[in-house]
């Protein structure tokens, strides 16, 4: 199982903090997220890809949007806005 943690606008839109999905890659996780949270499709995820201005950090570390990134059982995908201006 993969846990997708939602931050910022996606969390407010989905009205939840996290979603648990089955996925072997980020692309599969994005597709599953769109199904689990229709409010995020197509503004945040669309057809197995992240929309621009969003990124994920697998286990909170390096940031990426590459759907080919493999996932392992128990990984946590942190979904956040790529706009970090403060």
């Amino acid at each position: 199982m993969i846990t997708i943690e939602l931050f910022g606008v996606p969390r407010m839109r989905a009205e939840r903090d996290s979603v648990v999905v089955e996925a072997d890659s980020l692309g599969e996780a994005f597709r599953a997220l769109g199904v689990a949270c229709p409010a995020l499709d197509p503004t945040v995820v669309q057809e197995g890809r992240l929309r621009s201005h969003y990124l994920v950090a697998v286990n909170g570390r390096q940031l990426t949007a590459d759907p080919a990134t493999p996932l392992r059982e128990g990984d946590v995908v942190v979904l956040l806005s790529a706009e970090a201006g403060g």
């Binding site: 931050f7 910022g8 606008v9 621009s52 201005h53 956040l80 806005s81 706009e83 970090a84 403060g86």
Partner: peptide
Amino acid sequence: AATEKYRELGTVANLAT
């Protein structure tokens, strides 16, 4: 989409992230 974070939550959205 580039500004929706600022419009919907403001810069303080950074904190939890």
